[in-house]
């Protein structure tokens, strides 16, 4: 399961933050911390669907629910664990 977390971390740092050298912490606030714009949530949803075949419904795609790697990971795992 750790590879899901690392895939998400790599995607966020490389594609969304656009800084591969950035050390993103698990509980770091990605959107309110100014690392990515809230626009990127929609992009993350496209990635998660393509990579993990997990569809995150719109009501779950919010800054409050998807602001840290932990939150994003937990949300993906909720569906993958089924």
């Amino acid at each position: 399961m750790d590879d899901v977390r690392e895939k998400l971390r790599t995607y966020i740092t490389h594609e969304l933050i656009r800084d591969p050298g950035y050390t993103l912490k698990d509980d770091e606030e990605i959107i309110t911390g100014g690392l990515i714009d809230s626009f990127a949530l929609a992009e993350l949803a496209v990635y998660i669907e393509g990579e993990f075949d997990v569809y995150i419904p719109d009501p779950d795609l919010t800054v409050a629910k998807m602001n840290t790697l932990n939150q994003i990971y937990d949300r993906v795992m909720r569906d993958l664990a089924l």
Binding site: R18, D19, Y22, T23, I31, T32, G33, G34, L35, I36, D37
Partner: peptide
């Protein structure tokens, strides 16, 4: 340096309506 970069990103986010992509 990473701490400074984090502070720059966070402060811009808190004080403006934009997000800095490259810092």
């Amino acid at each position: 340096q990473q701490t400074i970069i984090r502070n720059i990103r966070r402060t811009i986010a808190e004080q403006t309506t934009i997000t800095a992509t490259y810092v």
